[in-house]
Each structure stands twice: as C-alpha cells, then as structure tokens.
Design a protein around this nucleic acid. Structure first.
Lengths: 223, 223
DNA sequence: GCCGCTATTTTGTTTGATCAAAATCGAATT
DNA sequence: AATTCGATTTTGATCAAACAAAATAGCGGC
C-alpha cells in the first residue's frame, strides 16, 4: 500500500500534467505543488520510480506510469466523493470542505468509500462541478471555457470553480457563484479589467475582476 | 496535537485501567494492548510523561494525568460516534466497523465530528451498547453483569458485547445477540460449561459456551 | 568558448515510531 | 543469602519523510 505522501505526489503530478498539457512534469513544479524543497521531491520521486509508479529522467522531469496514473485517478475520485458527501449529507460549508477532504481521502478505506458512494447514489460531479471518476477510473470530459473569455450578452452556466482557497470560495458562495448557476455577461470592460454579471433570478448585478473570472469555468447556454 | 500513536497509547491505557480497576497499568500490559514489544512501549511512555500526558514510575507502571485522560475519553467518543455513523447511516455490517472506526477516529477533524454528531442527532450509545461520552467528556455509567453469571430462568436484556473480533461479532449478529435483545436463561450447566438461551420472539434456543457468555454484558429485566 | 544563472541533485541531519537483542531489576525458591 | 525466572529497561539500528546547504549540470549571452 502506498503511503499518503506517495498518493499525494502522484495526484499532484497528475494534476500538474493535466494543467500544463505536458505528460512530463519538471521537478521544480512537483516540489512547488507539494510545498517541499526541491531536494525532497527528487528523493521521493526516485523512490516512486523504483516502485514503478513513475518514470523519472534526471534533469528532465517525471511522468506517471499506468499504475501511478490509476492511483492518482482513484485519489481524485476519493477526494471528490468525500467533498460531495461533506456538503450534501453533513451540510458543511462549501468553503471549508477542501482541506477536510484532503485529509480524509487518505484515511477512508475502499470499503467505506463504496458505502459512501452507494449512500450518495453514485454522483458524477462534486460540489465544485468537477467530474468524479468512476470506480474503474474513467470519466467524461466536458468542453468548458473560462468566464474571463466570454463576450458581452452571452448566457452561461457555471460548471466549475477552480480555486480551492477558502476565502475565495466563501465569497463565491455568498455571491451565488456556484456550479449550476445561470447568468449573463452584462458588461465587459477590458481596460477596467472586469466583468459585470447578472445572475438569473436575482436583480443586483455582480462585478468581478478578470483574475477571479479566470477561475470560473462555464458552459454556454445561448449564443 | 498528539500523533495518532500517542492517542492510541492513551486510549489503551485508559481502557486497560478501567478493565483492571487499577489506576496504574504495568508496562507489559501496555505493550500487549498496543501490540508492540515491551521496549517500544517504555520508550513511548517516557515520551508521553515528558509531555505531561501520563505519570510514569519505572518498574511499576503508568497512569494518565488529567490531560491524558481527557484525550483518551475524546478518542472513545470519536470511536463510538464513528461506529454509530457507519452502522446507522451507511448501513455497514456490525462486524466490519470496528477496524474502520479504529482508523477513522484519528483522521476525522473536530469540525467534521461535530457535524456527524449533529447529523446523527447526538446519540448516547454506540452499536455495541457502549456509552458515547459527551463532547465535554462525561458519561453515565450503568451497572451491568456478565451473561455468564446469570442464573437459570432469569430474563435479561443485552447491554454490551465486549469482544471486538469480527468472527465473533458476525456470529453474534446472525444469532441475534445484539444490544437490546431480550432473552431468558433456560438452562445453565456448569459442568458442560454452557448456557441455553431463549431469545424473545424466536423459537429456537441458542447454546453458548461460558467463554462467549462472558463477553456479553446484560441488564436484568425480571428477577 | 567561457561565464554565470537557475534548476536540479547530492549529502548530511532530524524526527517519530518501531524492532531485536542485551542488560538489569525484583521477587519467589531454594 | 544466592539463584533463577520473568518482567522491564537500555542500546543500537532501521525506515519514511522532511529540511538545509553544498555540489553540479545545462543553457543563454557575450
């Protein structure tokens, strides 16, 4: 059984690779994602390579093997199922669940996870709107675009909120910026670096900086 | 924050002390309860003493300080709340929850535990019939006797099943020997070392060896 | 082609938890 | 009192994960 640290490294490599579009992730980024000094990452990765979980090329970077990727995807599944559970069943606050899930995903056995999955009715997306991989490790992708790139007058539905920062999530929640929310871009002001939104069924429009808008992924509902 | 190993030592000392009625627990018993070699226990306990969680007298044994006891009781609370949750909410099997709870009790944050407690409606006893300490660390004691000591013809209600062994719990469950079950001792045969029981609202009587009967604690319902 | 910057790797330590085996203490038996 | 046995304590080693700081490799600029 991999330790929780190993699981985190694999998950982080997977996420970073997805983010950058590259299969191979340089050591520096691994270290940064894991919040450790570079030397620590090198040592760990050499260990993972010895166990066949990653392929490691010195001075180039690291990529997941089949086996490593399977574990990474399972970790994502755990994380998201747990988030879903904390919000939907226990009624926890959207902004406080990430760190809890981060912890719990390593502690919960497959058995308990199966029961939770069944109890929840096998959900397919978590409260952030991220897809929950199936037990066999597959998931459907969606074509999403960032809110920051959407033009004036376009109607969209929030699909995901990328940020994990509790502060931002609290703000998003109180403003109603959650997955599923439908809205329209009223005004787009590039020089002021902000967007004005009108949330469906609410009257006060919201103004959002581009930095924040970038973190919100949407699907178009009308063009 | 104490590590999970520290928490386990404290819990085990508390439980062993309760069991034996002595405040002070000899090292050998600590080692046995923790399933480590005696030397390991000595080293750990010296560490706990340095942190003010236990009082340690070499060659005599160890006892909990105020602070150590508080932590031990909180661990019991966590353990039992989690067991309750696994059985009542997720519908897990009575025989498989102990080891899960053993694990989870160290992983779940106070915050999540509070939510679980509220979700469950603040229960006061776990599925084994053990009292769940309140958040402030108190609990009511009951006067229980072992089934092995009850005379013929007496009606009793199961209050607790002491064993944690999955095999035994499975047997107990399929036989209907669970907390709350009412029954009567039909026959008591000291030389055959067994008891014959009649469970209320069932017709086939059950025969139980004294070893097993000892693990079942009951309250009298008639005398 | 050499210089120096940055990213990476090496090396040496630390901490927590464990084991194995050797040393030692205490009490019961002779 | 001396002996012996069982329970404890000490000692020395290991393992995983981390850090700090020194060593090094690779690449762009001159």
């Amino acid at each position: 059984m991999p330790t929780s640290t190993v699981e985190n490294y694999l998950k982080q490599i997977f996420l970073t690779a997805r983010e950058s579009g590259e299969r191979c992730v340089p050591m520096g980024q691994v270290a940064q994602a894991m919040q450790v000094v570079p030397g620590t990452a090198t040592t760990m990765i050499k260990g993972l390579a010895k166990n066949g979980l990653v392929e490691y090329t010195p001075r180039i970077g690291v990529s997941l093997t089949e086996e490593g990727e399977t574990i990474a995807i399972q970790m994502l599944r755990r994380h998201r199922l747990i988030e879903y559970f904390l919000v939907e069943t226990l009624g926890m606050d959207w902004s406080e669940i990430h760190e809890e899930a981060e912890h719990l995903e390593h502690a919960i056995s497959d058995r308990v996870l199966r029961y939770i999955d069944a109890f929840l009715g096998h959900p397919t997306t978590d409260p952030h709107g991220d897809t929950i991989p199936s037990a066999s490790g597959e998931w459907k992708k969606r074509t999403l675009e960032s809110l920051s790139g959407v033009g004036e007058g376009i109607g969209v539905k929030i699909a995901r909120v990328k940020d994990q920062d509790a502060e931002f999530l609290r703000f998003a929640e109180t403003s109603g910026l959650m997955p599923g929310t439908r809205m329209r871009i009223v005004n787009r002001n590039a020089s002021a670096d902000c967007l004005e939104l009108e949330i469906k069924e609410k009257d006060t429009p919201i103004t959002l900086g581009m930095g924040a808008a970038e973190k919100i992924l949407v699907e178009r509902t009308e063009s």
